[in-house]
Amino acid sequence: MGFPFDPTRPIYLQIMEEIKKRAVRGEIPPGGQIPSVRDLAKEMGVNPNTVARAYLELEREGFVFTKRGQGTYVTQDFARIEQERERLAESARQRFLKEIESLGLNEDQKAELLRKIEEDWS
């Protein structure tokens, strides 16, 4: 039910990542409101306390801010969101490289892989 969590990693971190991804994707515009703690908890099928913790950490990182009595919003700072996009893309790249390294491909196989990826993205 809800969001496909990886139960071997802290859940609050995964919630934070999801909010960041939504902002990076543009699903939530800069300055846009993120779902309330209870709404997100319900949507993702997770304990609201964990969502609350994630929001607290996001605020500490400066990625979101809370308007008293009104809700929580993504930062209006474009650069900050851009920074996060780069960070997420970079860690995805690292994971991918690590996975490929573990296969021990040679130069030709790697070239073939790159060609296929370019095809996927065109």
């Binding site: 969590f5 139960p7 859940i11 908890a41 304990n47 609201p48 306390n49 964990t50 609350a52």
Partner: peptide, 26 residues
């Protein structure tokens, strides 16, 4: 999930089907 009054209410839940409540337990 919808009735739990987080922050105010305390829940103790016991189970041996841990995966079902993996995301609920703190």
């Amino acid at each position: 999930f919808s009735e739990f009054r987080y922050g105010e209410q305390t829940i103790l839940i016991s189970t041996h089907l841990v995966s079902e409540v993996e995301e609920f337990i703190e």
